[in-house]
Design a protein around this nucleic acid. Structure first.
Lengths: 187, 187
DNA sequence: GGGATCATGTAACAGGTTACATGATTCA
DNA sequence: TGAATCATGTAACCTGTTACATGATCCC
């Protein structure tokens, strides 16, 4: 018998669904929610979610106690599973929305989803999120700068060192681009 | 019975291992290769590879005919599985190394691995890869610029439109950062 | 007649993560 | 004595992708 594998780490998609349940307030079932991730919808520009995974996440949200499902018979069609966010689900959503992402690479997906939802659910929260994300990226930038500074003094330029320097320079460039973008968005 | 599920898409990790087999030329078994992905090794700054996945990929490389395994008994320890790259494996590696990545988000991981290996296996190939990647990113940049231009004329500024514009602006910023970095590296 | 729409999924596969199994040997 | 090294993995879980099942109804 194994230990119950100490994992946590709820994926962005699950939180996105949780946010949509909060926005759509009331009647949301899988097929309905799927439209948010369909062609030319704003969220679809940022996160892809196939029906298979959508239904999967809905079940997990229910298992976690963040949503409840009620069955709505449809006559001929399969019964609708209408989901509703719970109080603990709402608390979890808020917690997630207040938390900036830790890495620059997560801006493109996770942060954009947070921003989309926060702006539509609570503009004040969105403003705070933006400010916190800006600070986080600034700190990342400073850390990269000091890592680079610690690197260059050693004059031995093995190709491995050159490579590591380039990696840091790329990260710094990406992080600075994010910082400038955040500053422009957060006016 | 299902169709054999039309997938392909070999992951970066597998190609990284293939590249290391080509570099280490001869005696490389799992435990040995693992050192490349250990603390403070240059590749570890870019890609994480736990032993479990390393051994998994080695088996898949053998299954694909890109490497062959020969058993080297060790007495008391488990026998070493020594892997060697094959001719088709070498061809596949070369093909992969010549191909720039299609998306800006893939620069951070997949492109950096290609660059690391190409520079160590064939500097000319590395130079061509850099040039091709630069062109690809330039085209991406142009595409994003025209997408933004197509967006702004419509004056109706729904919050959804604002969001989509921001997404494009972030991508453009990230792509431009990559372009400048590539230009600096590729001197 | 034939495809899109509604509404739910399952099956089979993939990569990836964490924890653990095995068992002798070397070193602090 | 007990941790690290060598060398291989497996087990159990996860997200994610693609293909397909079901079956009525609506619209061209």
């Amino acid at each position: 018998m194994r230990k119950p594998t100490g994992r946590s780490d709820v994926p962005t998609a699950a939180h996105a669904i949780l946010g949509l349940l909060e926005m759509d307030e009331g009647s949301s079932h899988g097929y309905d929610l799927a439209r948010h991730f369909g062609d030319s919808q704003p969220l679809a520009q940022v996160i892809h979610l196939e029906p298979a995974m959508l239904y999967h996440h809905l079940k997990r949200l229910a298992r976690a106690g963040w949503a409840t499902a009620t069955v709505e018979p449809q006559g001929t069609r399969p019964a609708r599973q209408v989901y509703q966010i719970t109080t603990t689900g709402r608390a979890e959503l808020r917690r997630w929305l207040s938390e900036p992402v830790a890495h620059t690479r997560e801006i493109r997906l996770e942060f954009l989803v947070k921003l989309y939802l926060a702006e539509r659910l609570d503009p004040d929260l969105a403003a705070r999120l933006l400010a916190d994300q800006f600070d986080t990226c600034r700190r990342l930038e400073a850390s990269l700068v000091s890592q680079l500074a610690a690197l260059t003094p050693a004059d031995a330029d093995s190709s491995d060192r050159v490579f590591v320097r380039r990696v840091l320079e790329l990260r710094l460039a990406q992080t600075r681009a994010a910082v400038r973008w955040l500053a422009r968005v957060g006016v």
